[in-house]
Design a protein around this nucleic acid. Structure first.
Length: 297
DNA sequence: AAACGCAGCAACCGCCTCCCA
DNA sequence: ATGGGAGGCGGTTGCTGCGTT
């Protein structure tokens, strides 16, 4: 059937944006905000496709963009996020304030890929190139071992084939993870259906000492308890606190953005977070996210 | 100084998803 | 329930500038 073009291409400019076009776009969005991209070009007096306007604004004209070189910390964060999310550049960009998906994508392809290859790491799989074949065959064994160990540590008495994950990004990257929007939950939701990354090899443990990427989304660990909580709250699994500090935390805190404006906790995490057992999923250190409920395909 | 090759990046294309009528 | 419109996303292209010969 085919789709109609998003704009009348014969009447639109293409290629590099001029200063005048930029100024027009900026002025229009400042005056009217980001609205309907399809109608924006005409309203702003631009001979551009709406998509082109959107891209230009998001990638280059937005006032909150951070231009300039990527820091080493950003490099490492991108690598780790990529190992979790794959080529989901928009999600990765969401974790790097002031960076855009396009920028990160380009940076990955031009710099980080090479950097990883120089380290002997396959950028696609994040595994040692030389050992990939070996670990493909040994992975099942190590995963099973991890499951056993994780179950013991967590005191989980249920029989499960799911590996409890211990995810901790290096401290150097933690501060980069700022007050994220509730959009974060989409990461868990969306990618539960798309990714399952096995990453229990010694090489990966060495590169990301406590980054175990065996993630799953499954039924909540304390499903019955959660069902009794008001919307927007859930019980902090005892797993996270050694079973001592089960309590209600808000959804914002569950995503690692405690003390944010979205926070509506009924308990203070500060007094209960002495347990630093290494949970730090994208900066969510010491918060109540039950990683047994995460699955990355 | 000119030609060539390469890397970096801005921008486009087409597909996918979501939302609404 | 369904189809179309709009936004969003990832892959790719092509231009530009810089380094090398």
């Amino acid at each position: 059937m085919g789709r109609s073009p998003c704009c009348e291409k014969s009447h639109t400019n293409k290629g590099a944006w001029t200063k005048e076009e930029d100024d027009r776009l900026i002025a229009y969005i400042r005056a009217h905000g980001e609205g309907c991209w399809r109608s924006l070009p005409k309203a702003a007096g631009l001979l551009r496709c709406g998509k082109s306007c959107r891209l230009r604004w998001i990638n280059y004209l937005r006032p909150d963009l951070k231009r300039g070189n990527f820091s080493d910390e950003e490099d490492e964060l991108i690598i780790k996020l990529h190992s979790l999310l794959g080529n989901k550049w928009s999600l990765i960009a969401g974790r790097l304030p002031g960076r855009t998906d396009n920028e990160i994508k380009n940076y990955w392809n031009t710099h980080i890929r090479r950097k990883l290859l120089n380290r002997g790491i396959d950028p696609a799989t994040h595994r040692s190139i030389s050992d990939q074949n070996h670990h493909q065959t040994s992975n099942i064994t190590s995963t099973a071992a991890a499951t056993t160990a994780a179950g013991a540590v967590a005191g989980d008495v249920t029989t499960t084939t799911t590996t409890t994950t211990t995810i901790s990004f290096a401290n150097t990257t933690q501060h980069l993870i700022k007050n994220e929007e509730l959009e974060d939950v989409k990461i868990i939701k969306d990618y539960s259906d798309h990714r399952k990354i096995k990453n229990t090899s010694p090489e990966n443990q060495e590169r990301c000492p406590d980054l175990n990427l065996e993630l799953r989304i499954g039924p909540p660990h304390h499903h019955a308890q959660i069902q009794h909580q008001p919307a927007g709250e859930y019980l902090r699994p005892s797993l996270m606190t050694g079973g001592r500090n089960s309590g209600v935390i808000c959804f914002a805190c569950s995503l690692g953005i405690q003390n944010s404006k979205e926070c509506s906790c009924t308990i203070s995490l500060n007094g209960t977070s002495g347990n630093s057992t290494g949970y730090d999923f994208m900066g969510m250190k010491n918060v109540g996210l039950d990683y047994r409920s995460l699955e990355m395909k």
